[in-house]
């Protein structure tokens, strides 16, 4: 039976900001992040809203993680193709250069827009975006969503061992990058 629109709206409103932030960390692009969140919402409403409410959150997180993973796969293909095109044209290009590092920061927000954010929050945002996306998502799901290793593994569709490794590496990197803020 289809749930009432109001109930679904309330649920999605309660998870949309966090979902957006997770997708934004993963893509470093607010527009791409919005697309991912919208796609996850549509899939959730279409396929899973009839499930018991206790399952909504884990299902939504899993859909979101799938969308983020798909986005990275497509990006990898695009990057490989662009790399081949660059080689073909003989334009060169630094070997081993990480395309993510060369992306312009799309968070070109108006001055003062984030005035309320502390320096530590901004530093954390910057540090998170330098992590490989699997480490980043494992960290966000474990530390922010407070999900168990098993639930995180299910959401990311990987082994529990991988989650532990990603999380541990993420914590190590973040502590090093943010030691000036949180020693």
């Amino acid at each position: 039976m289809r749930m009432e629109r109001r109930t679904m709206d309330d649920f999605l409103a309660s998870v949309e900001r966090r979902a957006f932030r997770m997708a934004e960390f993963a893509t470093r692009n607010p527009d791409e992040a919005l697309d991912i969140v919208q796609d996850a919402m549509i899939r959730w409403v279409s396929n899973y809203a009839g499930r018991p409410e206790t399952e909504w959150q884990p299902l939504f997180i899993r859909i979101l993680q799938n969308r983020i993973r798909d986005w990275h796969r497509r990006k990898n293909v695009r990057d490989r193709w662009d790399g081949m095109r660059t080689l073909w044209r003989g334009a060169g290009g630094e070997e081993g250069e990480d395309p993510i590092q060369t992306l312009a920061d799309p968070k070109g927000k108006h001055p003062g827009e984030q005035a309320t954010l502390t320096d530590s929050t901004k530093a954390l945002d910057a540090a998170l975006t330098t992590l490989p996306w699997r480490q980043q998502q494992a960290f966000l799901l474990r530390a922010w969503e407070e999900m168990s290793v098993a639930d995180t593994a299910r959401a990311m569709q990987c082994s529990q061992g991988s989650v532990k490794t990603h999380y541990s590496r993420a914590v190590h990197s973040l502590r090093r990058l943010l030691e000036d803020h949180w020693p």
């Binding site: 932030r21 954010l117 929050t121 954390l124 966000l140 530390a143 922010w144 914590v171 973040l174 949180w182």
Partner: peptide, 15 residues
Amino acid sequence: FIANVKKALDLGEEN
């Protein structure tokens, strides 16, 4: 450290 990170992430979400 994790508690601080969580607080900062919540702040980013709220703002």
